Each structure stands twice: as structure tokens, then as C-alpha cells.
Deep mutational scan, measured.
Amino acid sequence: SASLEDVKTAVLGLLVILQTKLYTLPASHATRVYEMLVSHIQLHYKHSYTLPIASSIRLQAFDFLLLLRADSLHRLGLPNKDGVVRFSPYCVCDYMEPERGSEKKTSGPLSPPTGPPGPAPAGPAVRLGSVPYSLLFRVLLQCLKQESDWKVLKLVLGRLPESLRYKVLIFTSPCSVDQLCSALCSMLSGPKTLERLRGAPEGF
């Protein structure tokens, strides 16, 4: 439990870093931090981490990651405290083949985003970082199938509809809506759902 406290501190630090690096160059920093966060949550489900502190780590990670939004130009952003989304000039939600690297070039400044813009690109060529939603999407499927803490599952179920409104997140990387529907149906009809959940409301 003591070591998990250190892990929790590290994860919180990564969330803060991602919130900053999403809007700064090099964009590969945001890509790497995002991948680290998603990989860490995957390990929770792989090794069945069920301690309360592990659940709190997942809760905080999902609470942040499910706020990711994308505009029509595929640029990622996060809402501010007033709910207004600021889109990044440097990070996009497109999935890119590994051989192309985590970044790609664009020939010049991008068109203005639909929300308040981030800082304008400084040079004639900007390297865009790929932060594909499919990585998070796979972890969300694991959550629906394996999550043991009701608070975490409730958060994910509550945030998913709003995330799905931003269709560009889903359609720019390999996210299977069929698998999502299947996971939701299995969660509702499967007898093991109630068996594994802690803290579920009576009558769920």
C-alpha cells in the first residue's frame, strides 16, 4: 500500500504534465506521457489490482482522460474550469503507423480551432504528436469488463456518452463501437458483474 501511494503521486504528476505538454513542443512528450498513463491502467486490469488506493488511481486517471476532446481538424483539447475547450495546435487524435513515428509534419500553421486557440506554431513546419484515442478506448473496454470498484465504473459510464459525442475521437483511430456495445450488453446481462463490484448501489 505504501508503494502504491508513491505510484499514485507519480500518476497525478503525469496527469499534470500531460495537461501542460498537450499545448507545448515537442509534441512527442505529450504522446509519451499519454502512453505511460494508459499502459499503467492496463496493468491494473492485467494484474487485478483491487486495493482501494489502486481504485483511486484509476478513478483520477479516467476522470482526466475522459475529458479529452477533439475538433473537426482532429486536434485534441481539454475543457477549462468554465467548460470551454482549448484545442492544441500540436497534438492530434489520429492513429499513425509505428514506422512513421509518433509525430508527423505539417507544412505550416493550422487553421484556427473551433475553441480558444493555443499558442501559434513558431516555425514554418510543426511536428504534430499522435495521441490516438484507441489506446484509451481499449482500456475503457477492459474497465467495462473487469472493473471491481463501483465508483470507477460509475465515472466511466457517466463520462462515456459525452466523449462519444466527439465522433472524430472514435473514427480517426481503430476504435470498435461494436466491441463497446458488446461490453456494455455483457456488463448488464452477465451474472458476474454484481459479484465483482464493490460498493454498487442496492438494486443495481
Results as ranks from 00 to 15, higher is better:
residue 1 S to H: 08
residue 1 S to M: 10
residue 3 S to W: 04
residue 4 L to E: 03
residue 5 E to H: 08
residue 5 E to G: 10
residue 5 E to Q: 08
residue 6 D to G: 03
residue 6 D to M: 02
residue 7 V to G: 01
residue 11 V to K: 01
residue 12 L to E: 15
residue 12 L to C: 15
residue 12 L to A: 15
residue 12 L to V: 14
residue 13 G to S: 03
residue 13 G to N: 01
residue 14 L to A: 08
residue 14 L to E: 01
residue 15 L to M: 15
residue 15 L to T: 14
residue 15 L to R: 14
residue 16 V to S: 15
residue 18 L to S: 02
residue 20 T to Q: 13
residue 20 T to A: 10
residue 21 K to W: 01
residue 21 K to R: 07
residue 22 L to M: 09
residue 22 L to I: 09
residue 22 L to Y: 02
residue 23 Y to R: 04
residue 24 T to E: 10
residue 25 L to T: 12
residue 26 P to G: 02
residue 26 P to V: 02
residue 26 P to D: 05
residue 26 P to M: 02
residue 27 A to W: 09
residue 28 S to R: 09
residue 28 S to N: 10
residue 28 S to L: 08
residue 29 H to F: 06
residue 30 A to L: 03
residue 30 A to G: 05
residue 30 A to F: 08
residue 31 T to N: 07
residue 32 R to Y: 03
residue 32 R to V: 05
residue 33 V to H: 00
residue 33 V to C: 09
residue 34 Y to N: 01
residue 35 E to I: 07
residue 35 E to D: 08
residue 36 M to P: 00
residue 36 M to N: 04
residue 36 M to D: 05
residue 36 M to W: 02
residue 37 L to M: 06
residue 38 V to Q: 02
residue 39 S to M: 09
residue 40 H to I: 01
residue 42 Q to E: 14
residue 43 L to T: 14
residue 43 L to I: 14
residue 44 H to A: 01
residue 44 H to N: 01
residue 45 Y to N: 00
residue 45 Y to V: 00
residue 47 H to F: 11
residue 47 H to L: 10
residue 48 S to Q: 15
residue 50 T to M: 09
residue 51 L to I: 07
residue 52 P to H: 05
residue 55 S to E: 12
residue 55 S to Y: 05
residue 55 S to C: 09
residue 56 S to C: 11
residue 57 I to R: 00
residue 57 I to S: 01
residue 58 R to S: 00
residue 68 L to C: 04
residue 68 L to P: 03
residue 69 R to M: 02
residue 70 A to V: 08
residue 72 S to A: 13
residue 73 L to Q: 11
residue 73 L to V: 09
residue 76 L to Q: 03
residue 77 G to F: 04
residue 77 G to E: 03
residue 78 L to M: 09
residue 78 L to Y: 15
residue 78 L to Q: 04
residue 80 N to L: 08
residue 80 N to D: 13
residue 80 N to P: 04
residue 80 N to E: 07
residue 81 K to L: 11
residue 81 K to S: 14
residue 81 K to R: 12
residue 82 D to G: 08
residue 82 D to E: 11
residue 82 D to Y: 11
residue 86 R to C: 07
residue 88 S to E: 02
residue 88 S to T: 08
residue 89 P to R: 14
residue 89 P to C: 07
residue 89 P to S: 11
residue 90 Y to D: 04
residue 90 Y to L: 05
residue 91 C to G: 03
residue 91 C to F: 15
residue 92 V to R: 08
residue 93 C to H: 02
residue 94 D to Q: 06
residue 94 D to M: 04
residue 94 D to K: 07
residue 96 M to L: 13
residue 97 E to L: 13
residue 97 E to A: 09
residue 99 E to N: 11
residue 99 E to W: 10
residue 101 G to F: 11
residue 102 S to F: 11
residue 103 E to T: 10
residue 103 E to I: 15
residue 103 E to G: 11
residue 105 K to P: 13
residue 106 T to V: 13
residue 107 S to G: 13
residue 108 G to N: 13
residue 108 G to R: 11
residue 109 P to N: 13
residue 109 P to R: 10
residue 110 L to N: 10
residue 110 L to F: 12
residue 111 S to W: 11
residue 111 S to E: 15
residue 111 S to D: 13
residue 112 P to C: 14
residue 113 P to Y: 13
residue 113 P to S: 08
residue 113 P to E: 15
residue 114 T to N: 15
residue 115 G to F: 10
residue 115 G to Y: 14
residue 116 P to Q: 11
residue 118 G to Y: 15
residue 118 G to S: 12
residue 118 G to K: 14
residue 129 G to Q: 10
residue 129 G to V: 12
residue 132 P to K: 07
residue 133 Y to P: 03
residue 134 S to K: 05
residue 135 L to I: 12
residue 136 L to P: 04
residue 136 L to K: 01
residue 137 F to N: 03
residue 137 F to P: 02
residue 138 R to G: 15
residue 139 V to D: 03
residue 139 V to T: 06
residue 140 L to V: 09
residue 140 L to P: 00
residue 141 L to F: 03
residue 142 Q to I: 08
residue 142 Q to R: 08
residue 143 C to F: 01
residue 143 C to T: 05
residue 145 K to P: 02
residue 145 K to C: 13
residue 146 Q to D: 14
residue 146 Q to L: 10
residue 147 E to K: 00
residue 148 S to I: 11
residue 150 W to S: 01
residue 151 K to T: 15
residue 152 V to I: 10
residue 153 L to P: 00
residue 153 L to Y: 02
residue 153 L to H: 01
residue 155 L to Q: 14
residue 156 V to P: 00
residue 157 L to G: 00
residue 158 G to K: 12
residue 158 G to H: 12
residue 159 R to D: 01
residue 159 R to E: 03
residue 160 L to M: 09
residue 161 P to M: 07
residue 167 K to C: 05
residue 168 V to P: 07
residue 168 V to Q: 10
residue 168 V to Y: 06
residue 169 L to E: 03
residue 170 I to Q: 04
residue 170 I to R: 03
residue 170 I to K: 03
residue 171 F to Y: 10
residue 172 T to C: 06
residue 173 S to M: 02
residue 174 P to R: 07
residue 174 P to M: 05
residue 174 P to G: 10
residue 177 V to W: 03
residue 179 Q to M: 13
residue 180 L to W: 01
residue 180 L to Q: 00
residue 180 L to S: 02
residue 180 L to V: 04
residue 181 C to Y: 04
residue 181 C to N: 03
residue 181 C to T: 09
residue 182 S to W: 06
residue 182 S to I: 08
residue 183 A to V: 10
residue 185 C to E: 03
residue 185 C to W: 04
residue 185 C to K: 03
residue 185 C to R: 03
residue 187 M to K: 01
residue 187 M to T: 03
residue 187 M to F: 08
residue 187 M to G: 02
residue 188 L to H: 03
residue 189 S to G: 08
residue 190 G to E: 13
residue 191 P to I: 09
residue 192 K to F: 12
residue 192 K to S: 14
residue 193 T to Q: 08
residue 194 L to Y: 10
residue 196 R to Y: 05
residue 197 L to H: 03
residue 198 R to A: 13
residue 199 G to Y: 11
residue 200 A to L: 14
residue 201 P to T: 09
residue 201 P to I: 05
residue 203 G to M: 06
residue 203 G to C: 07
residue 204 F to G: 03
residue 204 F to Y: 05
residue 204 F to N: 03
residue 204 F to M: 11
